[in-house]
């Protein structure tokens, strides 16, 4: 079912890569989402920021089909989640890799479960690592790589099956500063090359603004969408972007809104 290839001459590409209507979700008596709506225009990198425990992970997991929800509708490119090709990058790469498989076999796993012939699997993985100029010895096991390399491998794994959306839940939070810079640059490069829309939860406000076309600011529970802030700075974004007036302006604006929300 995931093998469905989209007809190339699609009639008018879908306007939104994610659209959520009337979403409700509670854990026991705790209401997390009550009639939550969200439309994300196509081909963007969207980052999500909100207070701890407000339900960012739950949201990304519901949209990617990992967590069931109580009521409402979620569409990806105008299709139900089950019919969409999804890539997901976990926060904790160590617990999301399959350590009994080599890095190469980890990357190839999404293709293998679909029953793709071995030769084609190899080709696809080779092409992918060449496209992004990855110089790692992928015959090694995942745990023998550094944290940043492992997270990069899990990003490749999420990309290999040609997803139409990439979900990332705090992809940098288990990495140190230097590695974060490296993985972040790589992710931006991937976004620019593939134009795959990305939906990324980020735990640091500046991080959220830096890569994003749109920043979603969430409230405390029950969680509402407080504001969608757009950040149209040109790409590639570099360390200079961090000191540009538009970045500083947008970050401050987001911070103000966040502070107001926390005071409520």
């Amino acid at each position: 079912m995931m093998l469905d290839t989209q007809p190339t001459q699609a009639i008018a590409p879908p306007e939104h890569f994610v659209s959520v209507k009337g979403l409700c979700k509670s854990f026991g008596n705790a209401v997390l989402y009550d009639n939550f709506n969200l439309d994300l225009a196509s081909n963007q990198l969207v980052s999500v920021f909100g207070p701890n425990g407000c339900g960012k992970s739950t949201l990304i997991n519901m949209i990617s089909g990992l967590t069931p929800f109580d009521s409402g509708e979620i569409l990806i490119h105008d299709k139900p989640i089950r019919r969409a090709r999804i890539g997901y990058v976990f926060q904790n790469y160590r617990e999301a890799m399959l350590p009994w498989l080599s890095a190469f076999d980890n990357i190839a796993y999404p293709l293998r479960v679909k029953g793709m012939p071995e030769a084609e699997c190899r080709d696809r993985v080779e092409t992918l690592i060449q496209t992004f100029n990855i110089q790692l010895d992928l015959k090694r096991y995942p745990y023998s790589f550094s944290g940043g390399q492992q997270q990069l491998i899990s990003i490749l794994r999420a990309l290999v099956a040609d997803p139409e959306v990439l979900f990332l839940d705090e992809p940098f939070s288990a990495l140190d500063f230097e590695t974060t810079l490296f993985v972040r640059d790589k992710l931006q490069e991937i976004f620019e090359t593939t134009k795959i829309p990305m939906f990324m939860v980020v735990h640091n406000l500046e991080e959220a603004v830096f890569l994003a076309d749109t920043v979603l600011l969430l409230s405390k529970r029950p969680t509402r969408l407080v504001e969608m802030v757009s950040f149209p700075a040109s790409r590639p974004r570099t360390l200079d972007t961090l000191s540009s007036p538009e970045f500083i302006e947008t970050s401050r604006h987001c911070l103000d809104i966040f502070r107001q929300e926390m005071r409520k």
Binding site: M2, I86, V113, A161
Partner: peptide, 29 residues
């Protein structure tokens, strides 16, 4: 077996049998 790896395999499109043999059995080794 670690829930995170089961989820990872599911989101990569593994069906129940594939999750069982590729993840559960290996996790239990």
């Amino acid at each position: 077996a670690r829930q995170s790896r089961i989820l990872a395999a599911k989101v990569m499109g593994a069906n129940r049998w594939q999750v069982f043999k590729d993840v559960l059995v290996m996790e239990s080794l």
